[in-house]
Amino acid sequence: MPYQIIVCGGLAPDPLQTLEPVFDPAKPSLKNELMLPAVFDPWAAHALYEAGHLAKQHPGTVVRVVSLAPKAKLQQVMMTVAQKMPFELVALDGPGGGFTDAAAVSAALAEAISAMADLDRSRLLLFGGWESATRGAGVVMQRVAERLGITEQFLAVDELSVDADGSLVIKERIEGGRHQISRCAAPPAMLAWATGNLPEPPNHPQTGMANMRVIMPALQKAKPVALEPAIEYLRTALPAAVRQTRVVKDVPAADIAREIAEWIRQ
């Protein structure tokens, strides 16, 4: 059965960058946010790779990415993401990052999905990240699904397979380091992915070129979205990072390893 897979995903700063929140109660942001290199949100990226994998197994499946982000940044990031696998893009030109309101973001995404002319709910699989690398509210996908009337919702998904009868077998992470396996008779369903099992596909320039024939026009006509501020921030801070560096000389590697292991144990 060919599916319509819609992957919701935004942008996040390149994970190696140093982030500094700049506090403003009305509009908090990251210091020098404009100049930080961005990547496709890693959680949504897992969802995208899984979508691509499923699409290869089910010919005729269409993968669409719906992304809300500043258009120029989105275009820049798409030049890398588009090389991973074939997909179409629905671009929404608006604020990104971790300080947006999850309710407003989900409303914008749901509206964009509802507006798709050829949306076939009987084949619809709504994918996204379980949470986001920007803040991790962890509620956007559920809210999008609710707005679209999709009641079959699965969180922290690590694996999806399709049985011969067309039912979806879904492995979700649950508490205690365990997995829960569910069976969903048929789409529509929402799957908010954890890390999945697939590695990041290597860049493939030919796929990128083919994708750009639809992605470039989509970016050109990206709909501007203004998210109403609905949250008052009282404080912003980075999680405390502990960095302990000690310069040692003439210490065998085994002793260093032992000391690190002991430090972790503590």
Binding site: A72, Q75, T80, Q83, P205, M216, P217, L219, Q220
Partner: peptide, 13 residues
């Protein structure tokens, strides 16, 4: 440049 839609710049390639 890319916002003109007339050129594609591919990183990591």
């Amino acid at each position: 440049v890319m916002m003109t839609g007339l050129a594609q710049i591919w990183p990591a390639t």
